[in-house]
Design a protein around this nucleic acid. Structure first.
Ligand code: FES
Ligand code: FES
Lengths: 156, 156
DNA sequence: GTCATTTGGTACCGATTCAGTCCCGTTTTG
DNA sequence: CAAAACGGGACTGAATCGGTACCAAATGAC
């Protein structure tokens, strides 16, 4: 399915929530309540996001998390990479490439292209536009054709 | 990691191999030997590809598999969808959408856009260009920046 | 007609990965 | 010092995935 992991999904929901009130510091517990997920799970994701420097944190009695940058400067790609590691649909190129004659692989170029496009697509969506009703969808999209079904988490 | 499943990877390798000699009918065993994977596994993937009408099959003593269409008319998206089901990084929109007020979801539009771009990227690569050294990579790509490491299967 | 060959379908099991929880240490404030 | 909150792992149960095996159906050779 080429699907995002649940944790990444949570990450986007959490970040979207925070983007609606940037500069405000919220605790993990409060956030968990807001998005309707288990506090421990939210906490785990917050730690990952903080480690990736997307969030700033303060400990202690009035501690909490806050966006490290403005929502316009944080992309979906950054959020996803923070939670589930580097983005890439294939993992060719590097070390243990089981490819034919190592460098002379016919498919490599194609995979690189796909990887690049995917990364750019994710990087082209900022938290700002992700969190708000999205003014104009740039290019009109045929909803039914593209979008297969499932059901994923979203902030209430 | 937003990674492709192994089986899908196998699928692409197998299809690439067949695209190099279209119109030739090969048995699962021969193919397995060619790509260096377990015959049973190759067989499993071939069944999926056949069910999706990307391959034609013939049973019996001189049976085997062959491309159902020309390599130019088969895209990576089709191969991947055949092996691991419909492509989509998120599964919002459909039935069990746990979203806020069902239709009025701020993030939905963004996800749809991402899904569309990913699908188009995969659909824009035909087996023909995937199987051959790829004449000119259209837009020049910065290899190092985009491509994180791993190592995936490739036909020898 | 019978048998070897090759695909079709499905069920199954082991291994890996993922999601979720918990515990304990550290920092901050009252 | 005590309470509130984050930081970093470790651990566990569940779900998924990869791989294998088995048997039925089709085809062609003899
Ligand atoms: S090494 Fe990546 S496609 Fe061959
Ligand atoms: S339902 Fe998909 S983002 Fe809200």
């Amino acid at each position: 399915m080429l699907r995002l992991s649940k944790l990444s999904d949570y990450g986007t929901v959490i970040m979207a929530h925070m983007a609606r009130e940037p500069a405000r510091s919220v605790s993990a517990a409060e956030l968990a309540d807001a998005v309707g997920l288990a506090p421990t799970t939210v906490s785990k994701v917050l730690k990952l996001l903080t480690r990736a420097q997307l969030l700033g944190s303060r400990r202690g009695v009035h501690g909490g998390y806050a966006l490290a940058r403005s929502p316009e400067e944080i992309s979906l790609a950054q959020v996803i990479a923070a939670v589930e590691g580097p983005i890439g649909v294939t993992e060719c190129g590097a070390a243990a490439g089981l490819c034919a004659q190592e460098a002379a692989c016919p498919s490599r170029a194609s995979w690189l292209r796909v990887n690049r496009v995917v990364h750019e697509a994710l990087d082209g969506v900022s938290l700002a536009e992700f969190a708000r009703p999205a003014p104009p969808p740039a290019t009109p999209v045929n909803l039914a054709a593209i979008h297969p079904g499932g059901g994923h988490t979203c902030a209430p």
